[in-house]
Amino acid sequence: MDRMSALFVVIVLAASCFASARAGWSQGSATFYGGPDAAGTMGGACGYGNLYAAGYGSNNAALSTSLFSGGASCGQCYQIACDASKTTSCKPGADPVTITATNLCPPNWALSSNNGGWCNPPRAHFDMSQPAWLNIGLYKAGIIPVLYQQVRCWRQGGIRFTIAGFNNFELVLISNVGGPGSIRSVSVKGDKTDWIQLNRNWGANWQCNAALVGQPLSFAVTSTNGQKLYINDLVPYWWKFSMTFTSNQQFTY
């Protein structure tokens, strides 16, 4: 094989490997917000509050309406790569960055979806923290085309349950979720009750109306991948509203 033929084979193989690496990825776009320390991304429509304390750190993003799915995507992890085939504003040699969905990027109906209304349906858009954005894009760009895919979330420690509410109303924030990062359904059980189904209130917060004060609590949690965990007797009978309890269980896929 002569040198030109060998070079052609290498180029074809490289192109084939690149195509395989991007197989299953989807096209979208990305902007950034929140400042260089990501302080402006704290809080948000998922309800995680301080993202450092919640274990999510600064690599986070607000999802457009179509991706946010009414809060069902809260906690999910996405790998995002700048699409260098469509822009010169990618950071040279950058690897994809992995972010956690922690907020909603609301639509702006006053602007066209192609001219400022980046989060309008049906666009797939990530409004990333500035630190996450700078892993893949140039600051001056403002907006870049991206390729993205949902990936497994890796979390330190077990799933956390923060109980808010008052009297017979319980609002349970579920955070630090591994595997798919997001929850499909939740039930709670006291030592004087049967299993009670919770409903999503907002973001990663789930609610029920039940007289649970003074009872030890167990949770049954099903991930969006379909894995179900029974977390028995996690919460002692003396629990108070605003307390957080960390389990020793985690989703594995």
Rank of each mutant, 00 (worst) to 15 (best):
A6I: 12
L7A: 13
L13D: 04
L13K: 02
A14H: 12
A19W: 12
S20P: 00
R22T: 13
A23D: 14
W25T: 12
S26Q: 14
G28R: 06
G34V: 10
G34I: 09
P36V: 11
D37W: 09
A38K: 08
G40D: 12
M42P: 00
C46S: 09
C46N: 05
A53S: 15
A54G: 06
Y56I: 02
S58C: 10
N59E: 11
N60E: 10
S64K: 03
T65V: 14
T65R: 12
T65L: 12
F68C: 03
F68R: 02
S69I: 07
G70S: 08
G71K: 09
S73G: 07
C74L: 08
C77H: 11
Q79M: 11
K86M: 13
G93K: 11
D95P: 02
T100A: 12
T102Q: 02
N103F: 06
C105R: 05
P106G: 08
A110T: 15
S112Q: 13
S113R: 13
N114Y: 15
N115H: 11
G116H: 06
W118Q: 06
C119Q: 01
C119F: 04
P122M: 10
R123A: 12
R123C: 00
A124Q: 12
H125C: 08
F126E: 01
F126P: 01
F126S: 02
S129Y: 03
Q130C: 00
P131K: 05
P131S: 06
P131R: 03
G137V: 07
L138Y: 00
L138N: 07
L138W: 00
Y139C: 00
Y139E: 14
K140N: 14
G142T: 11
G142D: 13
G142W: 11
I143G: 07
P145D: 07
L147E: 15
Q150G: 09
R152Y: 11
R152C: 10
Q156W: 13
Q156D: 15
Q156T: 15
G158Y: 11
F161M: 11
T162A: 13
A164T: 15
F166M: 14
E170D: 13
E170W: 08
I174F: 04
S175V: 07
V177S: 04
V177Q: 05
G179K: 03
P180N: 09
G181H: 00
I183E: 01
G190W: 03
K192R: 14
T193M: 04
R200M: 09
R200L: 06
R200N: 13
R200G: 05
N201S: 15
G203W: 01
A204T: 04
N205T: 14
W206G: 02
W206M: 03
N209A: 14
N209C: 05
A211K: 09
A211C: 00
A211G: 03
A211M: 07
L212Q: 01
V213H: 05
V213N: 13
Q215A: 08
Q215R: 07
Q215G: 10
S218P: 02
S218Q: 04
S223D: 14
S223I: 03
N225W: 07
Q227A: 08
Q227H: 05
L229C: 05
L229S: 03
V235P: 01
F241D: 05
F241N: 02
M243W: 15
T244P: 03
F245P: 02
Q249W: 02
T252Q: 15
